[in-house]
């Protein structure tokens, strides 16, 4: 049919069949990424803040809690499956996702856009902090550091500020991550539901930040407000 056309001209492509797109693996891996942020990482975070809260009761209880955790059965495989692998996956896949986005808050400085950018930076800070924290507490000291070791570490202003920044980053990333999760899994659809989800997630983020900082206070000031429980 195109015999009559002149060869030098720009040839529009002939009509062609366009099949429907089909799922690819990125959907699965993305969902896994967002899920690991909640379970098990988020769940572990809850547990971790909980056990560290014993520092607010007494040094002895903290030390006992700490050594109890060293004696759980199947310790290494449990740690690997529930902490190390999900953490590494969530961190590195997160960096991959980050590399595929191009932030534009200088042009579009809207709230949610700031959250998008903050989520990436806090994620990175949290990843580095957690990596260092795990290296020091789990591998360097074999998990045997007690209340006074931690207090000694936190007496260094440098370590102290690293902890404070780390805790704030983790709390933000977790809180905002919960909101992201409610979007990505279609839990909050309508505008009202999204707003409610944002309040709940924000409150959880703030709660973690406050509890985290109180735990730090417990070590820095040897402050045990719940000490009377143990008496």
């Amino acid at each position: 049919m195109s015999a009559k056309t002149v060869a030098t001209a720009e040839i529009p492509p002939e009509a062609a069949v366009v099949p429907a797109a089909v799922p690819d693996r990125s959907y699965f891996w993305d969902k896994i990424h967002s899920l690991t942020g909640i379970i098990p990482i988020g769940a572990f975070l809850v547990e971790h803040f909980w056990s560290n809260s014993y520092a607010l009761v007494s040094a002895d209880l903290y030390n006992r809690q700490s050594s109890d955790l060293q004696t759980i059965p199947w310790r290494v495989p449990v740690e690997a499956l529930l902490i190390w692998i999900p953490l590494l996956y969530h961190g590195f896949y997160g960096i991959y996702i980050w590399s595929r986005g191009k932030a534009n808050i200088s042009r579009y400085s809207y709230g949610a856009n700031w959250m998008y950018v903050m989520q990436r930076w806090t994620g990175l800070v949290a990843f580095v902090f957690i990596g260092w924290h795990v290296y020091v507490e789990r591998f360097l000291t074999q998990g045997r550091s007690n209340y006074f070791d931690v207090a000694a570490t936190l007496s260094h202003p440098l370590y102290l500020s690293f902890y404070v920044i780390g805790i704030l980053a983790v709390s933000f990333h977790f809180g905002n991550g919960l909101w992201q999760f409610s979007n990505k899994w279609g839990l909050a659809v309508g505008a009202h539901a999204q707003r409610k989800a944002a309040w709940v997630a924000g409150a959880i983020g703030v709660l973690f930040a406050v509890v985290g900082l109180l735990i730090v206070c417990a070590f820095v000031f040897h402050w045990q407000p719940f000490q009377f429980y143990a008496q």
Binding site: M1, T5, V6, A9, E10
Partner: peptide, 16 residues
């Protein structure tokens, strides 16, 4: 058929 011009490239073509 018709003759038409591409508004992008400016080229004129005929189409039977």
């Amino acid at each position: 058929g018709v003759s038409a011009v591409s508004l992008r490239s400016g080229e004129v073509r005929t189409f039977p």
